[in-house]
Write a protein that binds this DNA or RNA. Structure first.
Lengths: 190, 190, 190, 190
DNA sequence: AATGAATGAGAGTTCATTCAT
DNA sequence: AATGAATGAACTCTCATTCAT
């Protein structure tokens, strides 16, 4: 019983994973049920046992994306500055090691305003923004960063920078690492 | 003859313009020959007189895009700092007034690594990078910015920031203005 | 053992009943195993324990239909005229109280010439015709109706009228009651 | 130009005709675009050039049906009794010569309450009813039929009878002719 | 220079049915 | 006696593209 449940979960996860890969390679517009099913080794019709529609599968990818990237997960203990650093360097490292995930992130962002099923993307992003804002606010109050910084503004800058970089993962030209370092130095007043 | 040629050009331009609008509204994956033709008021088959394939039309949009955005156009005379400021605030203003254009930019960037016809996008971007790099280098040499700045790095940061913001135009949440101002202050050492 | 058999029968009946309801609501072409099973509260696969195929289930509905309508059941004692009246007013009342049953009747009639599993419908109808014919013949012989009436012909008219009315149950516009009364008056010579 | 227009109309008509045949043979639930297209000798996709959806095609069949049956068309000049006779015997003859049309009629009637695209069927039927009612009313006023007859009631009876008979065309057992004759005799008081 | 008509390839989705457990 | 998981075959519909006129 437990095993069956686990197998079933596994297949769901496998489908999401496969869909994620396909999106990274071919874009959301290149996502085909047939291809996803083939990667998992099942009949296309079987996908509909796990997801009611293609849109549902994409929603699954959306959730998977944010939980895998760990954008919203708790940072390890430390000063706000250390926490921000941990956050940024984790994302930076991840972007180097698994650029596909960030390609998917861009795909989602681009459709967030157009597709209903992806519109939940914006909630995730809002949470991300608030997380960064809180971190910055706390850090400024505790004197880790100069108090002329506007937490909201800086949070926005960080997110724009990360998403600009994510957008580049498909071509793979620009690197985010240096920009991140630079930004951290700027924040602390060089 | 000359007149005919001009009319022909007009229609080509009209098709590109229409395609651009559709891409801004529905995304590249939502681009339909039928819809573009209808906007221009012609039969879909007629489009094939002006463009051999859909991809060709998209290439046309790509060229139109960069020339319209004026990313690569000469900046008005002034110090490097004034020129950079002019460049950034022009883009910033444009993004506010005509977000559709930047939505198209994101669409192109996202597919640049996947679609052959859009791969030329990267050349444009490369030119943009070099333009910024040169401007920064000159400015640093002339003492407008501190010399610990790395022109290449800063150029990258600017581009990432702009493209992150362009990506947001479909949802319209985050604004680039503040981030740009902040960046300029950081560059001059606050 | 006996109990199990009874339970088994119950479930068979429940499935037929559910199928009957679905056919009344959505038509035979709208009949889905999934939906029938859900109404009974079982897994679709379980249905195949009780019926070999969907067609078998439909055959079950066919039998259920005629036994429930009581078209072929013995009429209460009385003169032929009373018996015919009882027959017609019972059907007429039934049509008002449970139109769904007659909707199913129409569905069956319509497919009777096309689907093998429903072709048995015609045997039922033949029996109905004979029953009416006998009743009329006896009544005419006994002087309840004028002898210029052709029992076969009148039986046909009655059946056509009833089925025309059954066909209307899905829209629910025309009523059979008045037509029946009128017919009975005509039969007796006004 | 004129020729092209005619050809185009021809193909539309051919598609409707073919659809009509398929419905008569296999029922509305057995109607397949592929089959209809094949009968006309075109690619299935081409059907969508003439009809936006399958439903549209069915609506086309609905209109074709009533205009072909001539149910609502003007009757030749004559007394009301002659007109009614002409009407009924025309339908009766037609039912013998082209039973398929009446099979389609039944198919439509059966779905009239369920399918939006077929719901217009009821408007046609309402017109039919009014036509008969008027005819009967005039005839009664002019003394062709006894004045104890209720035009509305008789009109209903006629329609039910015809539709009951139409429903039988798929099996082809019962004949409407005798019932019609009988009815006409009854109307005139034998 | 323009178009009406046509099409091939392929998309997502549905459903009766099967089978191991 | 029951079910979760799986599937093959079919369905409607879309779209870039072609071609005779």
């Amino acid at each position: 019983m437990e095993i069956l449940h686990t197998q079933s979960q596994d297949r769901r996860t496998a489908l999401i994973q496969a869909a994620c890969e396909v999106i990274a390679e071919k874009g959301l517009e290149g996502l085909r049920i047939r291809v996803v099913a083939a990667r998992v080794g099942i009949n296309p019709a079987t996908m509909y046992y796990y997801f009611a529609t293609k849109e549902d599968l994409i929603e699954g990818v959306l959730d998977h994306l944010f939980s895998t990237l760990g954008i919203l997960s708790e940072e390890p203990a430390g000063t706000p500055r250390e926490q921000l650093h941990a956050h940024l360097s984790r994302l930076s490292r991840r972007m180097r090691d698994d650029p596909g995930l960030f390609a998917v992130l861009s795909e989602m962002q681009l459709r967030a305003g157009r597709s209903f099923s992806i519109s939940r993307f914006q909630e995730y992003e809002e949470k991300w923004h608030r997380k960064l804002e809180n971190l910055l606010q706390t850090g400024i109050r505790q004197g880790f960063w100069p108090n002329y910084l506007d937490p909201d503004q800086v949070a926005t800058t960080i997110i724009l920078l990360m998403q600009g970089a994510a957008l580049q993962t498909t071509t793979g030209i620009r690197r985010i690492d240096n920009s991140i370092n630079q930004l951290e130095r700027w924040l602390t007043g060089r």
